[in-house]
Design a protein around this nucleic acid. Structure first.
Ligand SMILES: [Zn+2]
Ligand SMILES: [Zn+2]
Ligand SMILES: [Zn+2]
Length: 525
DNA sequence: GAGTTTGAAACT
DNA sequence: CAGTTTCAAACTC
């Protein structure tokens, strides 16, 4: 008993509460095999998520994936978009998310519904259904910081050091949680400043040399010329006439330090003049009596306070070991992946499929056809989506339970049957977006619910379930591993396990899907 | 220097 | 005006 307690203590020290981000995969080599596996697919971009929402950034190279067909994200007016986000709660709803089938004979654009989404340490998968045609697809994004061989960004941020504390200005009345940048924490603040300076001696140097800060009554144009951005801006799209531009924001003209494109922030610029004139009019003509007040905040941002934009230091007091603290509950499925990754990567393209029902009767020439169309059956996508949904519900309900009870059994059955149906490629004609599924999806908000603890009973059930469901006859090692997981954590650390378990369920089943697809690909090609 | 992540301005 | 999209700096490697 004593020994056990000691173990717990050590584990606790090594495992502080997980940050609300992706769990880092501990063993890099195994993680690498996972990424190798995922490299057999193609990522469309990177993704981060928090509790409420997903945020996805398309890779710059994404259009090149069009070799086998690709969708881009577009706005309603047809322009391309780089990144987008959506809320977990909106999954299953029509949210005006537009996709375009790229490189199709006749690029089609349609509003889409995100039918499911889930996130793991390694990837974010989003299932989309085209509203118009009913075509479905699953797109896989690489999770933030989950590039092969690297630790995740949360861990990396631990060692990064841009402080919030800036040049003697304290936070006061800010909304920071646990803010230490104030007079009560002078020592800590100084330390953070010191660390930051050590890393970057220029961290607190003003960006603007002799920028005009003094209020004045008129003739702004003359004053504005004074000052120069030390590093210069690198604007590309704003013309340096929006506050995106640090020069414009600082109320100075662009200089030779700038590497901006299409710069309109120079003395003779008519565009700049126009803005200036408009600003002046707003301040002095429309609201003449308020002139003194608007001195503080100009309508276009001139004369606003210049606050350098800095990334937050991670919790001000970096915990060095955090990178190594997250439990590795992924070992088992990673072993599976090892096996898989060593097989020939015949499935080397994006995981994109189309719904068979979507094809317009007769000719299909007008629609994009993936080279994987023969490999990826619609059922794969459908089943995968369904799996997301059901597993989401499992996770949700499991978390809602405070103690293990009979409900768990139902959920177990549900998940198990889902996984089963996923593997069987029976002809499931049911569209992903059927009503009852949609409802489930709407409920399935948060698969990885990080913080809620799970009872030991439930935990045990979940573990058993996975064993039966995924590994049939588990090895003694794996059994021991499961025990270790359960015994190694006290109440406080348990949420980590919960998250890990959920992730493992999902990823393992996800793995099954991928394996199945690889198998098909091997057979085909 | 390229690629990624982040905070925030701009937009609706 | 809250939610979403666009933007460029800060960051990492
Ligand atoms: Zn600029
Ligand atoms: Zn500039
Ligand atoms: Zn410029």
């Amino acid at each position: 008993m004593k020994l056990k307690k000691a173990v717990q203590k050590i584990t606790l020290v090594q495992n502080p509460p997980p940050t609300p981000r992706f769990v880092r995969i501990k063993e890099e080599e195994k993680a690498k095999t996972l990424h190798e596996l995922l490299d057999h697919l193609q990522f469309f971009g990177n993704a981060t998520r928090n509790r409420e929402s997903f945020r996805v950034t398309l890779l710059p190279t994404a259009p090149l994936l069009g070799e086998i067909g690709f969708w881009s994200l577009i706005t309603k007016d047809g322009t391309e978009r780089n990144d987008f986000g959506f809320r977990s709660a909106d999954i299953g709803k029509a949210i005006g998310f537009h996709c375009r089938l790229w490189r199709s004979a006749a690029p089609e654009t349609a509003a889409s519904v995100i039918t499911a989404a889930f996130a793991s340490a390694a990837c974010v998968a989003i299932a989309v259904k085209f509203a118009a045609t009913g075509a479905t697809a699953v797109v896989i994004f690489r999770a933030a910081g989950a590039t092969a061989g690297s630790s995740n960004s949360a861990a990396r941020a631990e060692t990064s050091g841009e402080g919030v504390a800036s040049a003697g200005i304290y936070c006061d009345g800010c909304n920071c949680v646990n803010c230490h940048n104030n007079v009560d924490n002078e020592a800590a603040r100084q330390e953070a400043v010191g660390i930051t300076l050590e890393r970057n001696p220029n961290a607190f140097r003003p960006k603007i040399a002799s920028s005009p800060q003094e209020p004045r009554n008129s003739k702004e144009t003359e004053i504005q010329v004074i000052g120069k951005h030390n590093k210069g801006c690198h604007c590309k799209k704003s013309g340096c006439l929006k506050k995106y531009c640090e020069c414009f924001q600082a109320n100075i003209l662009c200089s030779e330090n700038c590497k901006c494109m299409d710069c309109k922030n120079f003395e003779e610029s008519t565009e700049r003049r126009a803005i200036f004139q408009r600003d002046y009019n707003l301040d002095h003509i429309k609201q003449p009596t308020n002139a003194a007040i608007t001195e503080v905040v100009g309508s276009s941002g001139y004369r606003t306070r210049i606050t350098p934009r800095k990334r937050k230091i991670q919790e001000m007091f970096p915990r060095k070991s955090a990178a190594d603290q997250i439990v590795n509950v992924t070992a088992q499925y990673l072993q599976e992946i090892d096996r898989m990754a060593s097989s020939p990567p015949s499935l080397s393209e994006s995981f994109v499929s189309e719904h068979a029902n979507a094809r317009i009767s007769g000719s299909s020439r007008s629609t994009y056809r993936s080279v994987l169309a023969d490999v990826l059956q619609p059922q794969n996508v459908t089943n995968l989506c369904s799996l997301f949904v059901i597993l989401s519900r499992v996770a949700l309900n499991t978390n809602a339970e405070t103690r293990g009870n009979t409900k768990t059994g139902n959920l177990k059955a549900s998940a198990a049957s889902s996984a089963k149906s996923l593997r069987e490629t029976k002809d499931v004609r049911q569209p992903v977006c059927d009503d009852h599924v949609n409802k489930a999806e709407a409920d399935a908000v948060d698969i990885a619910d990080y913080n809620r603890p799970m009872s030991p009973e439930t935990l045990a059930l979940m573990c058993d379930e996975q064993d039966n469901m995924l590994f049939g006859n588990r090895s003694a090692n794996e059994a021991a591993y499961q025990n270790t997981i359960q015994k190694s954590f006290n109440f406080d650390a348990r949420s980590t396990v919960v998250y890990g378990e959920q992730e493992r369920i999902i990823m393992t089943n996800f793995l099954d899907v991928l394996r199945e697809l690889v198998t098909f690909g091997s057979i085909k090609g």
